Amino acid sequence: QYIQEIMQKEELQIHGMRGGLFTVTVPKELYIADYGSNVTMECNFDTGGQVDIDALRKDLEIQSEHNERRMTLLEDQLSLRKALLHIRDVQIMDAGQYHCLLLYRDAADYKYVTLQVKASYKTINTQVIRVPGSNEMEFTCQSKGYPLAVVSWLNINESVNTTHSKTPEGLYNIISVLRLKENTHRNVSCDSFHNTSQALKKGLHN
């Protein structure tokens, strides 16, 4: 809250110095994109009069710690007083806060927008094997996604071994293993989900 108050005071001082002639606004502060999709984040600006597109265009720059080859500033929208940052093939590392800073002649203004990236656990891979040297069956559910999901098994009371690791792409690889006696006759299923409204089920039969 303290940081927010400082930022608000700073913005008010900047606007006061400019007399409201140059302002930057954002139509939305939060963008949510699917992993591997494209997203365009928008800042709007008002110069209080005619805008010199060439003056804006010559100073266009993307400052990013990530792969700038996937990021593009859409220059054709500047005449509409829109500064659009287009990111293709969105990756987990693209998530975070973006600083939209516009400098125009002797004036400047900025806003922040936040990008969240999600990768649904669309595919649940399953495997059933007989454990060598025992009378047990091993049931495995595996899936990749982001953020970290909770895995639960339905219709069981036995303990489950669930582990996760990070892939080079930043996804979570979750593996959940259940062992049951071979003569257990019941249906079981594992759920992998971000939250209770996005559940995926995969049935396993014994």
Rank of each mutant, 00 (worst) to 15 (best):
N157R: 14
D109I: 10
T162A: 11
E169D: 14
P168G: 08
V117T: 00
T126Q: 11
C141L: 08
T140D: 05
K118P: 01
Q142D: 06
T126F: 13
S134I: 01
V117K: 03
Q142M: 11
H164P: 00
P132S: 05
E136Q: 13
I129N: 08
Y104A: 12
P168M: 08
W153F: 15
P168F: 04
E138L: 12
Y112I: 04
Y172H: 10
S159G: 10
G170L: 00
E138G: 06
S134F: 03
Q116E: 07
G133V: 03
V117R: 01
C141A: 14
L103K: 14
L103P: 08
A107Y: 14
G145R: 07
Y112S: 04
L115W: 04
L154R: 14
T140F: 07
L171T: 06
T114Y: 09
Y172V: 04
P168N: 10
C141W: 10
D109V: 10
G133C: 02
V151T: 15
P147I: 05
S134T: 14
N155A: 09
E138Q: 14
T114R: 05
A149V: 03
K118L: 06
L154E: 10
Q142H: 08
S152H: 13
A119Q: 02
N155W: 15
V150Y: 13
T123P: 01
N135S: 10
R130S: 07
P147V: 11
A107P: 01
I156R: 03
R130N: 07
L115V: 03
P147H: 01
Y104R: 12
Y110M: 03
Q116N: 08
V160Q: 06
V160R: 06
T163M: 05
Q116L: 11
S143T: 08
G170K: 03
A108C: 09
T162N: 12
H164R: 02
Y121V: 01
K118S: 06
E158C: 10
T162G: 07
T167W: 05
D109K: 10
